[in-house]
Design a protein around this nucleic acid. Structure first.
Length: 646
DNA sequence: TTTAGGG
DNA sequence: CCCTAAA
């Protein structure tokens, strides 16, 4: 994906949707694998090769065919296009070949192939495209490259582009990985492979078979190192290089200091080479799914296997552990795999963290905020208290957040948040800077005050108190002083919550805020903006209808009991706004009150109408002479009409 | 404390 | 939403 390989690459298109199919087929096994020419687009998609490309490849094949054993398909397909197992076996240098079969596809593919060869534009049926088979790819590579005996470098993680071409991950089989990983590589013909390979990287970076670093010269090792890690090294220590490379190739830190051989990402001490068993297992594994198992292919027989490793790290990590082959080798592998997983998790993490955090920042922030807020009001349902910011999803996420404890409440804060977005507004912010501990402390302190005060009384003022700690927290979280931004985001979230819950439940939901207390100066802060939910508006309207406009305290008490955060003043203000809105909208019937942007739900016209009615009614009823600016506002009660007037 | 209004 | 005057 990230790198676009513009070259013609052999084989098999891989489409996600077909992956499954592939898997199934693989499991069937022992059938020839078919490769088709495809080109990897910049975005990682596979595109059927064009005629020209096909021609090109063919030429290449022609040119170098001699080098490789004639590859023919049992079924008579053209060489280079289809490999049969037997053919592969015939290759000497190919010690291990990962192989997977796609039985069913064969036929279709063949046909496709022929069409392709015949010069027709490549029509790819879904099936064709889906043929991608990691194993097969691998085998191909090995084949193609093995003459040169290039050590293969499996780049599982982020690697330099050149490496990436060979990277296994391209071959993910049926894995969940949906995205378009650019399947680079595989070259259908040896020649093409060598070409692309050579042009991009060191020779040995291609081999996927067994690698015995012992045989490498320092220089070769360095090359291998470069191929493996994407960077050069001047180290001349053979052992070091060897181990390092081995680690890179196997993704394991456990590299024996003695001589060993690397096969398909596995380290093999000179002896081990179980075959039948291994084979069997590998098959099992392969069948078991697209789990990433790195199986050592001791012989050409082991075709199936291991290339499932294409799955993304994240995806894999969990699954791998689940594998539990009885075979020792496999166990070892598993162990290594675990290491790999652990290891692999880190890299992606970095990359993804940023992305994720960006994406999740908002969410997380909101959540954190809610947690805090909620916690402040003890009666809030616990479920929200510790809403796992990083749910079950992936561990990765967990890493991306840090745990912050505030006044006994804990929440996850994405690390990203720690980055400063704006300049601190206040001194205290500076003090806490990025020190979470400090922040926590500060917040705690701030929270404590209101907490203690809690329960003392209820009043319109309480809200101010509540808001104090929260805001501080926000600042803390942000690592700097900008409250506004966060606040906004947070509020939005809350609003949404309210909407969801509030609409039905009438709002009992949220907070029971009623704390009180010395607002202190902090009260200077502004109450959080809480968008009015439809539910609230309805209630308000009802309330007004029932008790009359102006009796805000009453309405609040009776109709907004559950919305503790709405004060009578709020109701009044809202009503005023509603009136305005309703009147404004009146003319255009349809516009709803679409002033500006109304991010939220526009108030349903019916409600506005109702408001209008009420207003009108009250105006009339009310004794209040000439309504003021906004249509008539307040007079008195609908019911208590007599009193008209404020 | 509650309302009404202005900002 | 906030603030305040007036009640």
């Amino acid at each position: 994906m990230e790198h676009s390989v513009g070259t013609v690459i052999d084989t098999v298109g891989s489409d996600e949707k077909d992956d499954k199919e592939n898997n199934d087929k693989k499991t069937c096994d022992s059938e020839p694998v078919v490769y088709q020419l495809v080109r990897v687009e910049g975005d990682g998609r596979l595109v059927p090769a064009t005629d020209d490309e096909v021609m090109e490849v063919e030429q290449l094949l022609e040119g170098e065919k001699s080098e490789v054993k004639a590859i023919r398909n049992d079924k008579g397909c053209l060489s280079g296009e289809v490999f049969s197992k037997s053919d592969l076996e015939g290759i000497e240098s190919l010690n291990s070949i990962l192989f997977s079969n796609i039985k069913v596809m064969l036929q279709k593919v063949k046909q496709e192939e022929q069409l392709l060869l015949s010069g027709e534009s490549f029509n790819h049926s879904p099936k064709c495209m889906t043929i991608e088979d990691p194993a097969s790819e691998r085998s191909k590579n090995s084949k193609a490259c093995n003459n040169k005996f290039q050590p293969e470098i499996t780049s599982r993680e982020i690697m330099p582009r050149s490496l990436e071409l060979n990277s296994i991950h391209n071959f993910e089989v049926g894995s969940a990985e949906t995205c378009s990983v650019p399947t680079n590589d595989a070259v259908s013909s040896k020649s093409s492979i060598s070409e692309s390979c050579t042009s991009l990287f060191p020779e040995f970076s291609i081999i996927r078979g067994e690698i015995c670093l012992d045989n490498f010269s320092i220089r070769e090792l360095q090359e291998a190192f470069r191929a493996t890690f994407g960077r050069q090294t001047s180290v001349k220590d053979k052992l070091w290089l060897k181990r390092r490379i081995a680690m890179g190739l196997t993704n394991s830190c456990h590299v024996p200091s003695t001589s060993f051989t690397i096969k398909d990402n596995k380290i093999i001490l000179s002896e081990a080479k179980g075959e039948p068993e291994r084979l069997q297992q590998s098959k099992n594994e392969a069948e078991s799914l697209s789990m990433n198992i790195h199986v050592i292919n001791a012989s050409p027989h082991d075709f199936k296997t291991s290339l499932n490793s294409n799955m993304t790290d994240r995806q894999l990590s969990g699954k791998r552990l689940g594998l539990s082959p009885s075979n020792h080798d496999l166990n070892d592998e598993n162990c290594q795999m675990e290491h790999c997983a652990a290891k692999r998790m880190r890299k992606p993490t970095k990359r993804y963290i940023e992305e994720l955090s960006e994406l999740e920042t908002r969410e997380c922030t909101a959540k954190s905020y809610s947690c805090v807020k909620i916690s402040e009001h003890s009666h809030f349902p616990s479920k929200r208290q510790i809403k796992p910011v990083c749910d079950g999803k992936t561990q990765r996420r967990i890493f991306s957040t840090r745990h912050v404890s505030v006044g006994g409440f804990s929440f996850e804060v994405p690390y990203v948040l720690r980055t400063r977005r704006r300049r601190p507004r206040k001194n205290f912010v500076d003090l806490m800077e990025y020190n979470p501990a400090t922040i926590s402390h500060m917040v705690k302190t701030a929270v404590i005050i209101p907490a203690l005060a809690e329960g003392s009384g209820s009043g319109s003022r309480s809200r101010e108190i509540v808001s104090v700690p929260v805001q501080i927290l926000q600042q803390s979280v942000a690592g700097e002083g900008d409250v506004k931004m966060n606040t906004k985001t947070l509020n939005r979230e809350e609003d949404l919550d309210l909407d969801h819950k509030g609409l039905d439940a009438n709002g009992d939901t949220t907070y029971g805020n009623t704390n009180t207390q010395p607002a202190s100066k902090a009260s200077a802060r502004r109450k959080h903006h809480r968008a009015w939910t439809l539910c609230e508006v309805r209630k308000l309207v009802d309330g007004v209808a029932k008790y009359g406009a102006g009796r805000w305290s009453e309405i609040r008490r009776l109709a907004f009991a559950s919305y503790s955060y709405r004060t009578s003043v709020d109701l009044k203000d809202k009503w005023r706004n509603l009136l305005r809105a309703s009147l404004a909208q009146y003319p255009t019937k349809k516009e709803t009150k679409n002033f500006g942007k109304q991010t939220c739900v526009p108030i349903p016209t019916p409600i506005l109408s109702q408001v209008r009615e009420l207003a009108k009614l009250q105006t009339q009823t009310g004794i209040k002479p000439s309504p003021k600016k906004f249509a008539g506002r307040g007079s008195r009660p609908l019911q208590g009409e007599g009193s008209g007037f404020l």
